[in-house]
Simulated scan of single mutants.
Amino acid sequence: MLRISDRDERDVKQFHQIQPEAKNKCFGRIFRSPSIFEDMVKSILLCNAPWRRTLDMAQALCELQFELKGHKRKRVTNPRSKAKNSADEVQSIGNFPNSMELNILDEETLKKRCNLGYRAKIILELATSIENGEVKLQNFEKALDAESMEKIYDMLNKKKGFGPFACANILMCIGYYQRIPTDSETFRHVKEIHGRRKKVTEKDVKEIYDKYAPFQCLAYWLELSEYYQSRFGKLSELPRSEYHTITGSYKLRTSIPK
Rank of each mutant, 00 (worst) to 15 (best):
M1T: 08
L2A: 07
L2M: 11
R3Y: 08
S5E: 06
D11H: 13
Q14W: 07
H16I: 01
Q17F: 06
I18Y: 07
Q19L: 15
Q19G: 02
P20V: 04
K23H: 08
K25Q: 13
I30P: 07
F31V: 07
R32T: 09
S33Q: 09
P34D: 04
P34G: 03
E38C: 01
E38T: 00
K42R: 05
S43C: 06
S43L: 01
L45F: 05
L45M: 03
C47T: 11
P50W: 03
W51P: 02
R52Q: 10
R52C: 07
R53Y: 10
E63V: 11
F66L: 15
L68P: 07
K69S: 12
K69G: 10
K69E: 13
G70N: 03
G70F: 02
K72N: 13
K72C: 12
K74R: 14
T77Q: 14
T77S: 14
N78Y: 01
A83T: 12
A83P: 04
K84A: 13
N85W: 12
A87Q: 14
A87I: 11
D88S: 12
E89V: 13
V90I: 15
Q91W: 15
I93W: 08
N95G: 08
P97Q: 06
N98P: 04
S99C: 10
M100D: 10
D106W: 13
K111H: 11
G117P: 10
I122R: 05
E125V: 04
L126E: 01
A127Y: 03
T128R: 14
I130N: 00
G133I: 07
E134V: 05
L137A: 00
N139C: 09
F140R: 01
K142L: 07
L144N: 11
L144M: 15
A146R: 15
A146W: 11
E150C: 06
I152T: 05
K158E: 10
P164S: 09
C167N: 01
A168E: 06
A168K: 07
N169P: 06
M172I: 05
I174K: 00
Q178P: 02
R179H: 13
R179G: 02
I180M: 06
T182S: 10
S184Y: 07
V190F: 00
K191A: 09
K191Y: 02
H194V: 06
G195L: 03
R197L: 14
K198G: 11
K199H: 04
E202H: 12
I208D: 02
D210M: 11
D210G: 06
Y212I: 06
A213K: 11
C217S: 09
L218S: 01
L218C: 03
A219L: 06
Y220N: 01
E223L: 11
L224G: 04
L224K: 14
S225K: 15
S225E: 13
S225V: 15
E226N: 15
Y227R: 12
Y228A: 08
R231P: 03
R231H: 13
R231G: 04
F232A: 05
F232V: 07
K234V: 13
S236E: 12
S236A: 14
E237P: 15
E237Y: 09
L238Y: 02
P239T: 03
R240Q: 12
E242F: 12
E242S: 12
T245D: 10
S249G: 05
Y250M: 10
T254L: 11
T254V: 08
P257Y: 04
P257I: 07
P257V: 09
